[in-house]
């Protein structure tokens, strides 16, 4: 499983990197970015899903 942020949709609401700082970071404009290649482990998948459920812009995608 991999997580990604669509930079066209992300508006820098800032929820993902607050909820799951191990998975998401922010760039110089404050937009969310995925750390590394976004591969999720069985430990991190819950956190990624929680971030996804809190993104007001629906900019986070979790894919097989």
């Amino acid at each position: 499983m991999k997580v990604r942020i669509d930079p066209e949709i992300c508006q820098g609401q800032g929820r993902c990197f607050s909820i799951a700082p191990g998975i998401f970071d922010f760039d110089d404009l404050g937009n969310g970015v995925v750390i590394g290649d976004g591969t999720l482990t069985s430990d991190s998948i819950e956190q990624a899903r929680l971030a996804q459920l809190n993104c007001p812009e629906h900019a986070i995608f979790i894919e097989e």
Binding site: Q11, G12, Q13, G14, G30, L50, L53, N54, C55, P56, E57
Partner: peptide, 20 residues
């Protein structure tokens, strides 16, 4: 509340720049 997609800072390109 664990799931909270609130829109207090707006949505889209005018998202409150001062939200942080």
């Amino acid at each position: 509340r664990a799931e909270n997609r609130h829109v207090a800072f707006g949505l889209g390109i005018h998202r409150c720049a001062g939200s942080n």
